[in-house]
Design a protein around this nucleic acid. Structure first.
Length: 426
RNA sequence: GGAGAUUUACCCAAGUGGUUGAAGGGGUCGGUCUUGAAAACCGAUAGGGGGUGCAAGCCCCGCUAGGGUUCAAAUCCCUAAAUCUCCGCCA
């Protein structure tokens, strides 16, 4: 939610900023609603004040033995007149809320406009691996090593599903454990949230109304619930409708959940295997900060996400996203992209974003400023740390050996009972 | 799935139509007393939005949420949510 005052005061600035997100905003109608709303409020509230006053005078008048029927009639008269205005007012209110709720966040000033093509690689870590043998892709490797069973996944669940088996399951779990241990070391609090969330949570995270169609809704539950598309949805709602103490900030959380998304359907051949599925595992970090601290928190999240990939010994890059490529709710996003040799492409394994007060406004998530005693909206930030569905293939491909085996990254070995090599099953 | 109870401020809690624009207690904060603390006593403590105004202020909405009845609702009616208890179901 963008601050309505900003739109009132600098509509041209907001329009320009949103244009960088390839969003064409026109505030002329909105501002006229706003004006009308405030005029109507004057009338409605003045009428209510008069009604209140008249009603309050009834007991005294009764006591004095006066005729109160005139007061009743007068209040009724005002109420009837007011009804029309109130209905109009509510109508405008709904229109304005819908309009505001649909607006994306304002991108940070330093971002370039436009879409993906304007993303900029700001850091490259490691080098593309060189193979002096015929390299295999991760699907081939996962199958020959007995790590993933695609056929049985399709059998029991259908398209877009796979089964981690044996050492594959252990590798997946080792990744998650490794990520968790790093976050715990950094003082983040471990959260296991519910996976079925209510509509309000999707709204506050900013995924709704825009992405209502991209999540899985459950039938037979009232009120309706959906499967979370990322743990961020749960984590940024933890403190909604709360006023936190300044001393509680920053809040640093991480959660592990599968992520459920409908988008999986249309993958291209370059994305075969476990690059995209209806469900994938992710550890997600979220911070709640004071506004002045969110830039530093953002840097911390990017650094943390990158350090995980680096510790895994994988070649990757960090991209600063153009305004049009960052998600709806965010003001700023850096992607960590790991190299997948078989397709010679860098794929996102973490998206670190600063939502600033966009989500906090939607969720009325505030803290009390100890200096002024006033409430202020917090800033929320999130970053994957990490999604396994692309790290797993990256490890298989980048760590593959000529004999068809795959080395286990050193940091994962303690989480896999010391196993150092994944060997082909006969 | 069925039945019942509950939902008031930071916490507990009174309150069934009109000085309740919410008692009382606890807590918290400030003070008196004290070498210091405790105790006691005194005082403060309803939040959060919104409108208007240079401001002081004035006004509107807030007793889980949304509707309704009424001149007037925490209080009556309807709907929903959450919590608790019991029963049923339980891969």
């Amino acid at each position: 939610m963008i601050d309505i005052n900003l739109i009132r005061e600098k509509p041209e600035y907001v329009k320009k900023a949103l244009a960088k997100k390839l969003w064409d905003a026109d505030f002329t109608e909105f501002l006229s609603w706003d004006k009308e709303k405030r005029e109507l409020m004057q009338v409605v509230e003045n009428n209510k004040a008069e009604m209140n006053k008249l009603s309050a005078s009834v007991p005294a008048a009764k006591k004095a033995g006066e005729d109160v029927s005139k007061i009743f009639a007068r209040v009724k008269e005002i109420a009837a007149k007011n009804k029309e205005f109130e209905e109009k007012l509510q109508e405008i209110d709904v229109k304005m809320n819908d309009f505001l709720a649909a607006l994306p966040n304002i991108p940070d000033d330093d971002l370039v406009g436009g879409g993906k093509e304007n993303n900029k690689v700001i850091k490259v870590v490691g080098e593309k691996p060189v193979f002096n043998f015929k390299m295999k892709d991760h699907v081939e490797l996962a199958t020959s090593l007995g790590l993933v069973d695609y056929d049985r996944g399709a059998k029991i669940a259908g398209r877009g599903a796979w089964v981690y088996t044996g050492l594959g399951a252990r590798l997946e779990w080792a990744l998650l454990n490794f990520f968790m241990s790093e976050h715990l070391k950094d003082g983040y609090e471990f959260i296991l949230p519910p996976h079925l969330l209510n509509e309000q949570s999707g709204y506050v995270a900013g995924q709704f109304p825009k992405f209502r169609e991209d999540v899985f809704w459950l039938e037979g539950l009232e009120p309706q619930r959906f499967l979370l598309p990322t743990a961020e949805t749960a984590l940024v709602n933890l403190h909604r409708d709360e006023i936190m103490n300044e001393s509680d900030l920053p809040k640093k959380y991480f959660a592990y959940t599968p992520c459920y998304r409908r988008e999986a359907g249309s993958y291209r051949t370059e994305e075969r295997g476990m690059i995209r599925g209806y469900q994938f595992d992710k550890v997600e970090m979220v911070q709640y900060t004071k506004p002045e601290d969110s830039d530093a928190a953002f840097e911390e999240l990017v650094r943390k996400a990158a350090s995980l990939v680096e510790k895994l010994g994988l070649h990757f890059q960090i991209s600063k996203l153009a305004a049009g490529d960052i998600s709806h709710s965010m003001a700023r996003t850096y992607d960590i992209e790991v190299y997948i040799p078989s397709i010679d492409i860098y794929k996102e394994v973490s998206s670190a974003s600063n939502a600033r007060d966009y989500q906090a406004r939607r969720g009325k998530c505030r803290y009390r400023d100890s200096a002024t005693g006033k409430t202020r909206f917090v800033h929320t930030l999130n970053a994957s740390g990490l999604a396994t569905s692309r790290i797993f293939p990256a490890i298989l491909e980048q760590y593959q050996q000529e004999d068809g085996s795959v080395l286990v990254p050193e940091v994962l070995q303690p989480f896999m009972g010391g196993i150092k090599v994944l060997k082909p099953v006969k």
